[in-house]
């Protein structure tokens, strides 16, 4: 590679082949980053593009940078991205429907304009061959970089070091939450619930009266309808509730019916069917969104955090 980089006017055919193949992949990766709906997929595409860029660095004689690209970017930064994605909710697929009027057209026009301008601009520059890094990298790329970094750029290096420290401290500060008030005792929580009068009893646990006691199975109320409240709000928001199937409900209804007939009571109307329940659920959600206080939302968030931990 060293010899390859030292060439005077044109690169080797091998590098050309490498460029065209990998370059195509890199562009595809970039497009994927922008166009794929799920953030995780975007991240993977980006990671791929970055690895290809690392290869290009290596091809260009920047051995140190190539390695740093892989270690820092593909390793650390992308890992951080994925970590945050997991925090925020990995299974969310972004809707690609544009909400801002004309934003997409404007963006496309701007991007196209800038692209054309850049490429024409580059095309206008006359490139009469290139020097190659043979001389610069004579004693090895890393020592050469180090000697530059610790002499000519030592001030910038120190400043960037400080910047990194500040960034680390800042990120810690931003994400760290100090609890400013005492934890509420169970008694206080109970009193608060009674005072608010919305949900006096504790929330039902999931899986009650159901065949499964999994977290995503709603509890069944005595009349056989599933209780949305019994499922964690995070799961509800993601739409990950598993329905109690209609067959079970029908069985339950039949049992009720027979009991009623046996005892000579009025006929039980039977549980509602799933479609109706879904409509009810939507109604409930709307009510919550309207009247739901910040408290419950915060509570849900912390709950979710605990869950992810």
């Amino acid at each position: 590679m060293n010899a390859l980089a030292a060439t005077a006017t044109a690169t080797s055919t091998g590098e050309a082949v490498q460029f065209w193949v990998l370059g195509t992949v890199a562009v595809l990766g970039g497009l994927g980053t922008v166009l794929l709906r799920r953030a995780v997929h975007s991240a993977l595409c980006l990671a791929g593009t970055m690895i290809i860029l690392a290869l290009f660095y290596l091809a260009n004689g920047a051995y140190f940078l190539g390695v740093v690209q892989i270690v820092v970017y593909t390793g650390a930064v992308m890992m951080l991205f994925l970590f945050v994605l997991m925090l925020v909710g990995v299974s969310h697929a972004d809707s690609l429907r544009e909400t801002l009027k004309g934003q997409r057209w404007l963006a496309a026009a701007c991007a196209l304009g800038v692209g054309i301008l850049l490429i024409t601009g580059i095309g206008q520059v006359s490139v009469g061959g290139f020097n190659g890094l043979g001389a610069a990298n004579a004693e090895g790329n890393v020592p050469a970089l180090a000697s530059l970094l610790f002499t000519k750029y030592v001030v910038a290096f120190e400043v960037v070091g400080a910047l990194l420290t500040v960034a680390a401290v800042g990120a810690t500060l931003l994400t760290h939450r100090e609890r400013v008030e005492k934890n509420k005792s169970q008694r206080e929580q109970a009193e608060e619930r009674v005072r608010e009068g919305k949900q006096v009893t504790p929330l039902p646990a999931p899986g009650v009266y159901a065949r499964h006691n999994a977290n995503d199975r709603p509890a069944l109320l005595p009349d056989g309808t599933p209780s949305e409240l019994s499922v964690s709000r995070t799961l509800r928001d993601r739409g990950q509730i598993r329905e109690v199937n209609a067959e079970q409900l029908a069985q339950l209804a039949a049992i009720e019916q027979r009991t009623a007939e046996y005892q000579g009571r009025a006929t039980y109307p039977g549980p509602k069917d799933p479609g109706e329940r879904a409509a009810d659920r939507a109604q409930d959600a709307a009510d919550r969104a309207e009247g739901g206080g910040q408290d419950t939302a915060a509570g849900q968030a912390s709950e979710r955090e605990e869950a992810t931990k």
């Binding site: 801002l100 701007c110 800038v114």
Partner: peptide
């Protein structure tokens, strides 16, 4: 909307 501002910035850059 930050994205609208970004468009104008980008347009300005262009």
């Amino acid at each position: 909307f930050a994205r609208s501002y970004a468009v104008s910035m980008f347009g300005g850059a262009a």
